[in-house]
Design a protein around this nucleic acid. Sequence first.
DNA 1: TTGCGTGCAAAGGTTTTGCATGGCA
DNA 2: TGCCATGCAAAACCTTTGCACGCAA
Lengths: 135, 135
Amino acid sequence: MKGEYKTKPRNAIIEYLRENPDTRFTARDIYSAINAEGDNLDRSTIYRNLERLCKEGQLIKYKETDVHATCYQYSEGHGSCHEHMHAQCSSCGKIFHIDNDILDEAAQKMKSEYGISIDYGKTVIMCKCEDCKDK
Amino acid sequence: MKGEYKTKPRNAIIEYLRENPDTRFTARDIYSAINAEGDNLDRSTIYRNLERLCKEGQLIKYKETDVHATCYQYSEGHGSCHEHMHAQCSSCGKIFHIDNDILDEAAQKMKSEYGISIDYGKTVIMCKCEDCKDK
DNA sequence: TTGCGTGCAAAGGTTTTGCATGGCA
DNA sequence: TGCCATGCAAAACCTTTGCACGCAA
């Protein structure tokens, strides 16, 4: 079965995730960070591991209009990221975990005006965080 | 200034958009459709025109996790797409143009609880539309 | 020993860019 | 005529895939 072995490359990738929670990163970011420390991971190894981590539910994979590459996000201690909404700063990429209740009123209006039901787990509200509001 | 000339390639692209409103398509889709009619548009011409139409606010540009390429969608009569929010059905891909006012209350709460300001033009609420709600 | 994971190399696809030419105004 | 838009070619990227070897269990 796949995912059985604890290898050096895999450990390095998981270590990177733990050190960079709630932040968007690309395969290239991991590649640069890990190889800067002297290791020499191959890109394909990174892609294969990220793909597996996504399937196992530990990683969220998504795309952003402004970023050419696929983005990933690791989050620990926020419960299942498939159940609540996220907001992301369009400048720095920081992720906020948003309580679904905040949209209660808006959800009702959307239902009555457009006939749509919000898919909270897949929604990312783009925003500016306090640090980036003037950029 | 850019965007001044009415050229044959640009007209063909705009014609395609008008014939395919509220539908997601990629640069490749346009390329195939137009060139199947006997024309011979270059890919770079398509990218440059789509890019301009996006900047002018007539086209929505976004990425989907499942689709390798960038997706576009054309909308007419909804004002600039940089100024209002969108909702997209996660099943069929249909886009809804949402009045920002709907989020008034939620926006205030996000501001006070998380310190963030919604970036309406870049936000896409994922949802299920009426046709897809049972899927 | 077994067979999964890795590194390497190459390929496939999308998107961008430089440059000379063509065509709109 | 002046200058923007196009076509062409090439390059830059991202991502995937096949294969042989190394290594964890």
